[in-house]
């Protein structure tokens, strides 16, 4: 127990060096904070021959959040950084809050947002808010880069579109419209050090108190973040805070989820939680918009 299967360890100091290693070393895994990867190594879920540590690459620690220019996060920006960043709190409150609800304080100091995405766990905290903020990822491999939407990145339970030799280099979050409000919430068995029973992020694009458009992303109820089709349909053109609409939106979300029963909750309880989260978030958004 807790003895890791042997592997070779590499510690590049530039992105190019990391990509070269990824391209040439067989059966390689990237490690950043290690909060997910180390557990997978200990549990023998993965057996990499080569481990590439990207935490000593200064370029990947970079963080930019300029007036009117959204934010750019290098792949090694930690959860704790996003939790405490005043700029992120002001511009992307739902994302900053979600980052601060991952694991415990030590895990957040170690873990990275890019890692939370790349691990692609169904109960991950940050994908839903990043999808609501239209975030994108810069994926790099030797000799090429591509930019993809976070909503298209995760494809299943611990599955994503990363190709062999490819890594997340940056997370780009565009500048939000001042009339766009986003809120994240979750239900878990206790306040700290938990894995969510279900989580949710809702975005509303407002004109006064009228909802022009909306988005609702649910986590921990499917193999990947579930983007609701019906909730935006219910919300579009209505007044934010209309209690009848809120109840209808909750029912709409509940009709779309088909969660599983596991150690954390039964399927039926998860459905109940989804309804509660829609009602809670919409009421809070309405209260904040007054």
């Amino acid at each position: 127990m807790n003895i890791l299967t042997p592997f070779e360890y590499f510690r590049p100091t530039t992105v190019d060096e990391a990509l070269e290693l990824l391209a040439t070393k067989e059966n390689a895994k990237i490690i950043a904070g290690g909060s997910d990867l180390m557990i997978q190594l200990k549990e023998k879920m993965i057996h990499p021959s080569n481990v590439i540590d990207i935490t000593h690459i200064p370029e990947l620690q970079e963080f930019k959040c300029e007036e009117g220019k959204g934010a750019v996060l290098g792949a090694c920006v930690t959860d704790a950084f996003c939790e405490f960043s005043e700029e992120l709190k002001a511009k992307f409150p739902a994302f900053s809050y979600a980052a601060g609800e991952i694991g415990g304080p030590q895990v957040r100091e170690m873990g990275t947002i890019a890692g939370n995405l790349a691990n692609s766990g169904p109960s991950a905290e940050t994908p839903s808010s990043l999808i609501c903020y239209d975030a994108q990822l810069v994926l790099a491999k030797k000799g090429s880069e591509r930019t993809v939407d976070v909503k298209d990145f995760i494809t299943g339970n611990r599955r994503n579109i990363l190709e062999e030799g490819e890594m997340i280099k940056q997370i780009i979050i565009p500048e939000p419209d001042p009339n766009t409000k986003v809120k994240y919430s979750y239900v878990a068995m206790r306040r700290m050090m938990e894995i969510d029973i279900a989580n949710m992020c809702i975005r509303v694009d407002l004109d006064g108190d009228t909802i022009k458009d909306a988005r609702c992303v649910m986590g921990s109820v499917a193999i990947k973040p579930l983007i609701s089709e019906k909730v935006p349909e219910v919300l579009r053109g209505t007044k934010l805070g209309d209690e009848e609409v809120i109840l209808k939106a909750a029912e709409a979300a509940q009709s779309e989820v088909h969660p599983i029963t596991d150690v954390r909750a039964t399927a039926q309880y998860r459905v109940d939680v989804i309804g509660a989260l829609v009602r809670r978030i919409l009421r809070e958004l309405a209260a904040e918009n007054k």
Binding site: Y9, R11, I31, G33, G34, M38, Q106, E109
Partner: peptide, 26 residues
């Protein structure tokens, strides 16, 4: 040994982290 209990907490570069989830090389 799983990052849940905090008994192994040490400080690395001014941050409280878990030594059970840190590669010594890193």
């Amino acid at each position: 040994g799983q990052g849940d209990c905090g008994a192994c907490t040490v400080i690395i570069d001014n941050k409280a982290v878990l030594s059970c989830l840190t590669l010594a090389m890193s």
